[in-house]
Write a protein that binds this DNA or RNA. Structure first.
Lengths: 157, 157
DNA sequence: CTGCTTGCAAAGTGTTTGCAGGCCC
DNA sequence: GGGCCTGCAAACACTTTGCAAGCAG
């Protein structure tokens, strides 16, 4: 499949919203930040900082890895970008809920055997969240870490 | 409080069981592995590899960091030692369930604001575990990662 | 003795930081 | 034009690995 660039994609929309949001908060809209935003808006995958840097480099050559980290950090502070810790497998980033178009809220579950990452209904941890809130006053962020275990295929073998 | 060394502590028991288990499986019982085991048996804290290395060095000077990693890995393979991923805060190790004396099964919850780690009843994720098993055939390891969120104190401020 | 384990040093990852110059607003 | 952001390089924290010597069984 080839992107003809002829249609207004949801990618454009996300980046537009993000731009507006940056301006509204007095933050600077820079080439590097836009590139990172475009990369994130242009995929449904879970990307590592490294992968984002590579793709950003394709969009706008010359963007440095350190800048990508700083951009992700800045956008994270503003709540526009979120990350998920995958245990030993590192960290992945994606646009925050409101900005992500195709995706609905979900959490991640990773197989420690084969590395596969599965998506699970975002409400799966709601009862746990309520329990922690009630018992400890702890406000759980259900999507911040991937749960670990063994997937069906790996259990079988 | 001072350890007079006059009583048989649960630490001794844990190390003893671990030793037996190693022998039973044809694995070698070495100074380094014993030191690591003693460190883990001697505390209820969650220790990083670095901390374990430091304490092991006190017990038996000359134990190298790399050896600690290898020992933790070996004991982990055998199911005698477990680790918990704390997100950005790294990884901590402890004796596996049967060997840990004082502790009962529990999961960890970490505040991303202040870093505090709270213990939660190990059965908290049981419903989730059953759901994942049923829906996806995924066997959840509830204690392998710490859940993240904001603790009561940090919510208040 | 046989070969698994260790110590050491070095190389890998993944991420952060100090600094000088550049670009956004 | 002022100051935030970037590129670069170096530093960092954490973990892994190749190798020769050492010790467990």
């Amino acid at each position: 499949m080839r992107d003809t660039g002829q249609v207004t994609t949801s990618t454009d929309t996300s980046v537009e919203v993000l731009t507006t949001e940056l301006r509204r908060r007095g933050e600077r809209v820079t080439t590097a930040r836009l590139a990172v935003a475009e990369v994130l808006a242009g995929t449904e995958e879970h990307l590592s900082a490294e992968q984002i840097a590579l793709r950003a480099e394709e969009l706008r050559p010359g963007i440095h890895r350190a800048t990508v980290y700083r951009a992700l950090d800045a956008l994270g502070e503003l709540g526009l970008v979120t990350h998920v810790h995958l245990g030993k497998a590192g960290t992945t980033y994606h646009l925050a809920g409101e900005l992500a178009q195709e995706h609905q809220e979900h959490l991640h579950v990773r197989c420690t055997e084969c590395g596969a990452v599965l998506d699970v209904d975002g409400k799966t941890l709601d009862p746990v969240r309520r329990k922690l809130q009630r018992d400890l006053g702890f406000r759980l962020d259900p999507e911040h870490v991937a749960l670990l275990g063994i997937c069906q295929d790996c259990s079988a073998s």
